[in-house]
């Protein structure tokens, strides 16, 4: 064993420097030059202050905004402590949470089946998206709070719908933060 100690230590130190320091620093350097916005976390600046990241969901509770998915990150959308609920399909707690969430949703749009994303918590607790159907489900509430027509809101949703990658990968999405910004710009 002892004759292996020298190569073990030297190579460990060598690789720690090469793969642990040079490699991440090189990626950082190139990234900062070639794609500075992505490298900094796709932050959205408004008048010099950061209002969030285009990739990270935020909590929305006001009637006049579209809402994202239920979040289990901290007290909701804690982007310093990502987390899912980790509740299994037979969890009584999960079933209770879903019943609770359904009450408010069904009150604002009675008689319509609720899209799953609005009652099921996301994996990260930071999901920035909902499906186009889940956004459309919220039109009656937002229309009432803003005094806008359903058609106007549907157009905004369509304009903010991201399509499947390469036409078939993943799912169509609506980024809730970007949709709400578009909404504010359309009619504050």
């Amino acid at each position: 064993m002892l004759n292996h100690l020298r190569p073990a230590l030297i190579l460990l130190i060598g690789f720690s420097l090469l793969t642990g320091a040079v490699y991440p620093l090189a990626v950082t350097g190139i990234a900062q030059l070639a794609a500075p916005e992505q490298a900094a976390g796709s932050l959205i600046n408004v008048n010099g202050s950061v209002i969030g990241s285009a990739l990270i969901g935020q909590p929305f509770v006001a009637e006049k905004y579209f809402h994202g998915r239920p979040s289990a990150a901290g007290t909701g959308y804690d982007a310093g402590a990502s987390s899912g609920s980790n509740l299994g399909p037979t969890s009584a707690k999960l079933h209770g949470q879903i019943k609770e969430r359904l009450v408010a949703l069904q009150a604002s749009n009675p008689g319509v089946a609720v899209p799953g994303e609005l009652v099921y918590a996301s994996a990260s607790g930071l999901d920035p998206d909902v499906s186009p159907a889940a956004a459309a489900f919220q039109i009656p509430r937002v229309a009432k709070a803003r005094g806008l027509s359903a058609e106007q809101l549907q157009t905004l949703i369509d304009q903010n719908t991201g399509h499947r990658a390469l036409g078939f990968l993943g799912e169509p999405t609506v980024n809730v933060l970007l949709l709400n910004r578009a909404l504010d710009a359309f009619k504050p």
Binding site: G41, L55, Q58
Partner: peptide
């Protein structure tokens, strides 16, 4: 879109005016 930086966590003020700390 994946971040690559050594910054401290970002403090954002959300659209509804809440504080959001974004890990980097």
């Amino acid at each position: 879109g994946v971040p690559q930086n050594f910054s401290a966590y970002t403090e954002a003020t959300t659209l509804e005016g809440a504080k959001q700390i974004i890990a980097q």
